[in-house]
Design a protein around this nucleic acid. Sequence first.
DNA 1: CTAGTACCTGGAGTGAACTCCAAGTCAAGC
DNA 2: GCTTGACTTGGAGTTCACTCCAGGTACTAG
Lengths: 148, 148
Amino acid sequence: MTIKEVSEKYDISQDTLRYYERVGMIPPVTRTAGGIRDYQEADLGWVELAICMRSAGLAVESMIEYVRLYQEGDSTIPARLQLLEEQRRILKEQKAQIETTIERLDYKISRYAIAVETGKLTWDEAAAEACGNTDAKRQRTDAGDKKL
Amino acid sequence: MTIKEVSEKYDISQDTLRYYERVGMIPPVTRTAGGIRDYQEADLGWVELAICMRSAGLAVESMIEYVRLYQEGDSTIPARLQLLEEQRRILKEQKAQIETTIERLDYKISRYAIAVETGKLTWDEAAAEACGNTDAKRQRTDAGDKKL
DNA sequence: CTAGTACCTGGAGTGAACTCCAAGTCAAGC
DNA sequence: GCTTGACTTGGAGTTCACTCCAGGTACTAG
């Protein structure tokens, strides 16, 4: 499979595919005699994995480390396991933060929806309604502050 | 409240607080006669909102737009509603991507855990086990390819 | 009044992750 | 063999979100 085909298949630029390989985020891709990339099934597996990790927001650096360990052989299996567990921990944290923010957006949106329907602003809360900050429970302001 | 206190309260640098204000991610903060920032309850609400949105990964740019609309007054309420709904859509997408990646990590981790326990690599799947890509359902490779 | 510390601004610098470019190589059609 | 278009590399440029810095101003203790 040519780089063009892979780029179309995964909707990612050819430059990014070359970049991933260059920095070691995927192992070296199979080449033709002439030096042209010819992605095999295994190469595609790595590409797909890289895209999956990146689209979840994981660092390029940690994927590079994973590939480095993989290339060092079976002795690095415990280290790889630890790395994967750490990445999972990061994602779970990020997911929790997103959920908190979605809740906050839901609340704001419900207030705005009412305002749009009735043509009036009817709330008087301060901007903060808890956001996962340790300090989230603050007292309400005294006045008709309509920011949200 | 001084910038130092706010920075400690939310565990964010003073530079970042000034940056948020400078680019318009929060409205201008209350100042003392001498020009020193003196965060009021309302200012803190904006700071907290900004931190919440950023920690979920939303763009600074969209927060700037929200503040701009807010400062233009009530006529922009429908536009603000639309903006918030768009941000929520983005977060839900990102959340789904994270969930997919966590599942993939779970699978890999379970395989590695077995390998660490038994001291042997016992799987033979290719690297890809579905990652939200349209192309996810690929055939297994023919050999004992132990990449994952 | 002075020393010292916290704060101010505008602007430059940084790191991450691409993205683009120039100059050259490879391969398919005529 | 020659043209044309896709591919190659190394390196430079871009964007985003900070982060740092220099030179100056404001409050606080002695």
